[in-house]
């Protein structure tokens, strides 16, 4: 090895490939943003360009407060609110339900533990998409169409979080529960005092993954919400593109900005909580 830094062609190549990759990921979104900064007339004539305009505030105003449809209920603000409820509700619901079930399976002597395990883990085999129609019918029968419960609970019916916490609990040293039992902690105390605080990073990682997953749901909200006041951002995009399709002057600025608003919260989470996000992703999918 030489001490002085040599100019290396291979390093140039490496960086070029990486820069191209990064541009591939970023440019499309920059393009959406650019289009949202010009007038719709300009966009319709020229498409995306290199120069940013001054229309962002106006388009933002439209994106957040204008509504389509008959009821006028699906403003950007309303959809943002619904997306938040779906994201938080799904993530919290899934983690609470999953942790409890995993705790019961790992830390209790249960006669039917193996049966419970299989009943729960079979759900990992079939994604919601393959049973989407009967699920819809059942939600309809239960009168849960256009409700937050109907939106959230069926999505929780797969055991990914349970599986994840089961793996994590099993990796916790055996002696910890033994020490706690000698210290006089019962099952509830052990769960609250020891297990939950011990799982903090795991909960955070799982929360991030689940929040993004819930926020980005598309097919299920599309089927279950017909009431415009219940639309989420991701579901609302479909309506806007359809409305754009039928008009002479599509609202590019508004729809593109709404798309950006729709991806902003999860994207910010990924960027700012990168370590937990990567941990949650790589450890939950195994």
């Amino acid at each position: 090895m030489t001490v002085s830094k040599r100019f290396r062609w291979s390093a140039v190549l490496d960086h070029s490939i990486l820069i191209m990759g990064a541009l591939l990921m970023i440019l499309p979104v920059v393009m959406l943003l650019q289009m949202a900064s010009t007038t719709d007339v300009h966009t319709m004539k020229n498409g995306p360009g290199l120069v940013f305009g001054d229309q962002l505030p106006l388009n933002f105003q439209k994106a957040m407060f204008k509504a389509d449809g008959f009821t006028g209920a699906n403003t950007g603000v309303r959809m943002l609110y619904n997306s938040m409820i779906l994201g938080f509700g799904f993530a919290i619901g899934k983690i609470v339900v999953g942790m409890m079930a995993a705790y019961a399976i790992v830390y209790f002597r249960l006669r039917f533990a193996t049966l419970a395990f299989w009943v729960i883990f079979t759900t990992l085999l079939l994604p919601l998409e393959v049973r989407i129609l009967p699920s819809y019918e059942i939600v309809q029968k239960l009168g849960m169409l256009n409700t937050y419960q109907g939106l959230i609970i069926p999505l929780i019916a797969s055991a990914t979080a349970t599986f994840f916490f089961r793996q994590f609990f099993r990796a916790i040293p055996e002696e910890l529960v033994e020490a706690a039992r000698i210290d006089g902690a019962g099952p509830i105390k052990f769960f609250v005092d020891i297990l939950v605080p011990l799982s903090r990073t795991m909960i955070a990682a799982m929360f991030i993954i689940m929040f993004i997953y819930g926020w980005n749901q598309y097919l299920w909200p599309t089927m279950i919400t017909t009431d415009e006041g219940m639309y989420t951002l991701v579901r609302g995009i479909k309506q806007i593109t359809q409305v754009n399709e039928g008009t002479n002057l599509p609202e590019y600025g508004r729809s593109n900005l709404l798309s950006i608003i729709a991806i902003l919260p999860p994207v910010l989470i990924v960027i700012f909580f990168q370590r937990w996000f990567v941990k949650g992703l790589t450890e939950s999918d195994k």
């Binding site: 040293p173 002696e175 910890l176 033994e178 020490a179 706690a180 039992r181 000698i182 210290d183 006089g184 902690a185 020891i194 605080p197 011990l198 903090r200």
Partner: peptide, 20 residues
Amino acid sequence: VDPADRDIAMVFQNYALYPH
């Protein structure tokens, strides 16, 4: 009798300290 009620104390091989 439950471990907690046996009036015993135990020291474990990996110490089993509560990490948090």
